[in-house]
Design a protein around this nucleic acid. Sequence first.
DNA 1: CGCCCGCCTTGATGCACGTCAAGATCGCGC
DNA 2: GCGCGATCTTGACGTGCATCAAGGCGGGCG
Lengths: 259, 259
Amino acid sequence: MASQVCRFCQARARNICRAMSAPHELAALESARSGTVVMRPHETIYRQGAPVGDIYNVLSGWVALYQSLDDGRRQITALLLPGDVFGIEPDGLTATTCSAEALTSASLCVIPRERAAALRARFPAYGETFLQFIGREYTLATEHLTSVGRRSALERIAHLLMEIVTRVKRHYPLLSGESAQLPLTQTEIGDMLGLTGVHVNRMLRQLREDGLVDVQPGSVRILDADRLARVAGAVEGVFAFWSETPGPDGEQAPHRARG
Amino acid sequence: MASQVCRFCQARARNICRAMSAPHELAALESARSGTVVMRPHETIYRQGAPVGDIYNVLSGWVALYQSLDDGRRQITALLLPGDVFGIEPDGLTATTCSAEALTSASLCVIPRERAAALRARFPAYGETFLQFIGREYTLATEHLTSVGRRSALERIAHLLMEIVTRVKRHYPLLSGESAQLPLTQTEIGDMLGLTGVHVNRMLRQLREDGLVDVQPGSVRILDADRLARVAGAVEGVFAFWSETPGPDGEQAPHRARG
DNA sequence: CGCCCGCCTTGATGCACGTCAAGATCGCGC
DNA sequence: GCGCGATCTTGACGTGCATCAAGGCGGGCG
């Protein structure tokens, strides 16, 4: 009883399904997916240590993956925006090392793990897209690692704000000027960057006083992108990476320019 | 002019080529690979910002991926041991975000990126193995992120030592007792964990005085694995993860036990 | 043999960030 | 309209790790 959702899916062109467009490919997708799930803010999608049999495609809303330690410390290890995928790490059926939680209301397209594997076997291009998407997540994680390991609190926050605004801009025109929704509490920003909420607050204040950004609860506006990037100590080429759709070696990157 | 190296490759059973064993599969591998490269200690394999057209399979030796900031700070983002793969992140042809360097003498099996893609298209099982290996690297990066973000210096070091000994043990019997080669300087350990070499030294001293480990230049010996794991604040299930060969949802994990 | 250069080791000092604590603000439910 | 909880905000204070500095050890090379 496959419905026809995939062939009308607006998100398809830019997410993990983008290699599938012929009628028989769409039919295969439609019969593989098990449905769309709608999560409410702060609802848990799956919990660290539990087996996870599905792969999730973010259609709308923001999702966080995080790891918790016994004493309650937690680290957000990934931030997923519409167009991103999670649950692909191949240890799904035994035990995930991260929990997943919706930060906002979110709708997720769900595909059972084995059916996704079957699709990859049948449509190699679909498998390649998987590789590109998990490679993208890996690169993002790597950049967060250098941020948390080697950047000061101020640099980390500047870097994260640039990343978020750039990634949001990739799919949605910004609200006005360089302003974007930011549905993260300061504590959650701290949990991404290895800081406390209190210290995040102080650093945001400094960025505001220096005229670099304006962060209101719920939104960011970047006032001086050049100086912010300089504070962030951004590595050559990251902006292009953040804004591009993962692709076969970045071929279809929209505005890639180096140097 | 394909040689016959792959069919006699000792490493094949446990590395990214393990799905390939039939004669025609081995022939395909042999004609795809471009050769074996031998690196000397501290030799650079590729540099951050440069395009990389190859995928590397570690046959022997240790390799580090790292990211550098303008002012010389650096973060090691991955540690590759024999059996691991790097260069798979799909942004290869434009610009890598990390540099790669041999920590010891190392030999690497090299496959050009497009030929690997062609193999994946022809042999879906090979493509699945890619997914599993990059997923493994992603999970490791994620755990390093929570270490650097949320663990104290002492905890991070305990955690890293357990990870390294467990990963080494996966492929090689330990030297004697729980002792393994550790070809990392204390500064390099610091670069993995977001610490200075000086502080690494002090924390190692404390672990030694507490009778948990014995770290000589060049080797580690774990004296009390239980207490060390408690200091590390290890998350449920990581040890099994470190020691297992990445597989289809961990099916062939050798000693997996949870709880 | 003796120099030099990396690395390890340890001490003294400083600072970036954490912790604790007390409002202020705002949205929400009753 | 009022109370309540979550979040933001700011101050005072403490500490974990960095920084600076000096000496020891060992291995490679002239």
